[in-house]
């Protein structure tokens, strides 16, 4: 039963992944990422992670990818790769070592062949995750908000056109 859902989702995700790394234009790459995200949200549902699946769609697809698209539009002109590949052996080396890496990861993961036990009622619901977040992980949760704040401020500072050098500069 689950195969029916998993296999198309996995195929779609891998296809999206290929699209991400092979697209000529960044905008295509971003769209392909959207495909991957959606497929993964489906697998999350299979793994009894309903809340995270919803977050995946809302935050990743809804916020992050949109941010990417904004920036891509902003840098539209001349935002491609330069004509010259300065590292000629990079592509070969990347494929070789990535294959070795993949082989190692697969060798590690195939060991876990035991079928999953059925998930208990209410596992992975918003209530379940929320309880963990606000009880066990309250402090990290609050810290996460601080990190977001820092990120916002950092983005503003980096992009801001500062006053001409002199005041406040080093």
């Amino acid at each position: 039963m689950e195969w029916v859902i998993f296999v198309p989702a996995a195929v779609l995700a891998i296809a999206g992944g290929v699209g991400v790394i092979a697209a000529r234009q960044p905008v295509h790459s971003a769209i392909a990422l959207l495909v991957v995200l959606a497929s993964l949200a489906v697998t999350y549902l299979l793994l009894a992670a309903q809340f995270i699946a919803v977050l995946q769609v809302i935050i990743y697809a809804g916020a992050i990818v949109v941010l990417f698209l904004f920036v891509i539009m902003l840098l539209h002109a001349r935002s491609g790769e330069g004509p010259v590949e300065k590292l000629p052996r990079q592509r070969v080396a990347a494929v070789v070592f990535a294959s070795l890496f993949l082989a190692a990861l697969l060798a590690g993961s195939v060991a876990a062949t035991r079928p999953l036990a059925p998930a208990p009622e209410g596992f992975g619901t918003a209530q379940h995750v929320g309880e963990a977040l606000f009880v066990t992980y309250l402090l990290p949760f609050e810290l996460a908000s601080v990190i977001l704040m820092v990120g916002i401020i950092a983005a503003v500072v980096v992009v801001k056109r500062g006053p001409p050098a002199g005041r406040g500069g080093r």
Partner: peptide, 30 residues
């Protein structure tokens, strides 16, 4: 029920694709 290995294998494949993308592509956005 599917074994967890299936999901891990998908995860490994996607990760490796990400690695290749980082190593091979020169467009910072990609």
């Amino acid at each position: 029920m599917l074994p967890v290995a299936a999901y891990l294998a998908l995860s490994a494949v996607l990760f490796t694709m990400g690695v290749v993308g980082v190593l091979v592509r020169r467009n910072a956005l990609i």
